[in-house]
Every structure is written in C-alpha cells, then in structure tokens.
C-alpha cells in the first residue's frame, strides 16, 4: 500500500513537466494557431436559449454545475438533441455527394461513388493543342492526371479568389480526371429519387454531363458521361 502510494506520487510529479510543456505549446503560434481550414465551414448548433450567465457558472473549480437553472438548460438541450436525432431517422434512400462551387455562387455536386481524392492546386502544366477547358496535367504521385477546368467547361463567371481552389479527382469505369473548382463546400446528403431532370433552358451549358438539379440549386454532375468523352480525358489508365 505504502509502496504503491509512493510510486503513484512519483509518477504524478513525473507528469509535471508535461503540463508545463502543454501550456508552452499552447502559447506557441505558427503553424497550429490558425483557425479551421477555409473550405470547411461548420454550422454549429447555436447556444440558443442559453442564458449568458451559464458560461461563468459552468466554469471555475466546481465539478459539475450545480445551479438548478444550469441543470435545466443542460437537460433541455440534451432532450432536444435526442429529438433532433429521432427526426433524422425517417430515412429515404440517401446518398452522399461532395458539394463544390464554381464562380462566386454556383453550386455543383459529385456523387461519392465517383470521388477519389481532393488535391491542393499545385503546378498545372498546359498541354498544347488541347481545348481551353483542359487546364493541363498534374503529377499525382508519379502518375499524370489531366485536369479539366470546370469554369471553362460550364462557362461560369470568373472568380478572382484562387485561395480555395482545389482539384477534385474523380473516376469512373477505369478513367480518372481532375476537376479544377473554385472551392469545396463539404459533403452533403441527397435523395437520388428527388433529383430533377436538367432543363436546357436552365442556362447550363454542356447539359449532357449533368445528372440533374437537386433542390433547385445544386447541379449534380454525371461523371461517367464526362469521363466517357474522349475529348475530355487526355490519358486513360486502368484503375
């Protein structure tokens, strides 16, 4: 018992430098000090209904907030959490897609099944004699990947801010291509049964590569059709 206790105290004091180190690391600035990456906004549930008094009340040294009001707020939030979860249960067949932006505000989507990876935009080498919509080729871990400039392809408005531009690597039937987009918004769910047929009057060019419009705002792409077009894919590699 005595021995065990002593071992315990020794170990505890051995942790001391770790706590000091932790505080020192927290003060260190770059590169960890920056806020989340720009392409991934997260809509946090707001602390609606939370009286401002709660923040100080749950802090300080006491374990578990004891104040009855605080307790009630916590309980009601937890109940709400459970309810939200329940309403999510009524599941229609859903699928995920990656949502991205072209120009300042046009939203597009790519079904997950076609998605391979997201890349930062490095140097893209132009290929002479290719259509304007082909941005060029990039070296992807030793493999040449052709990159399609989707802004050119869908004739969307130019977008000045290149900082959030990404290359989305997609594949279908053994072909693979990179799609240059202005920003990746994140992953969303969609209900395939509720995708509306695209109308040529929607003003979308290259309509044959559009699978449909979801909720009137997201243009879902038909990657398979895109990759089947020999004019769009420079190199063809077996998957």
């Amino acid at each position: 018992m005595g021995k065990e206790n002593k071992g315990r105290t020794d170990k505890v004091s051995a942790m001391k430098p770790v706590f000091e180190e932790a505080l020192a690391f927290a003060q260190e600035t770059a590169p960890g000090a920056k806020t989340p990456s720009p392409g991934t906004p997260h809509a946090r549930p707001s602390a609606a209904g939370l009286p401002p008094a709660i923040a100080p009340a749950v802090g300080a040294v006491q374990l578990m907030p004891r104040d009855e009001n605080v307790q009630e707020v916590l309980r009601s939030r937890a109940r709400l959490l459970a309810r939200l979860q329940k309403t999510g249960v009524v599941e229609e067949a859903r699928d995920q897609y990656l949502c991205f932006r072209l120009g300042p505000n046009e939203l597009y989507g790519i079904p997950y099944a076609c998605l391979e990876e997201l890349m930062y935009v490095g140097s893209i080498a132009r290929v002479p004699g290719t259509p304007r919509a082909i941005a060029g080729v990039v070296n992807r871990r030793g493999e040449l990947l052709s990159v399609l400039d989707l802004r050119q392809f869908f004739r969307t408005d130019a977008h000045e801010d290149a900082s959030q531009a990404r290359i989305i690597v997609v594949q279908a039937d053994g072909a693979r291509v990179g799609l240059l987009v202005d920003a990746v918004e994140g992953n969303e769910f969609y209900v395939p049964a509720r995708v509306a047929a695209p109308l040529s009057s929607d003003g979308v060019s290259n309509i044959e590569y559009v699978q449909g419009i979801y909720e009137g705002k997201v243009t879902l792409l038909n990657i398979r059709a895109m990759l089947a077009d020999p004019g769009l894919v420079v190199n063809r590699s077996a998957a």
């Binding site: 991934t40 995920q96 990656l98 997950y112 997201l118 992953n187």
Partner: peptide
C-alpha cells in the same frame, strides 16, 4: 467521417 472531404479537412 469516412469521406475524402473530411480526410482533407
């Protein structure tokens, strides 16, 4: 989450 977007984030 099991998605490329989250891996990247």
């Amino acid at each position: 989450g099991a998605s490329a977007a989250e891996v990247w984030a």
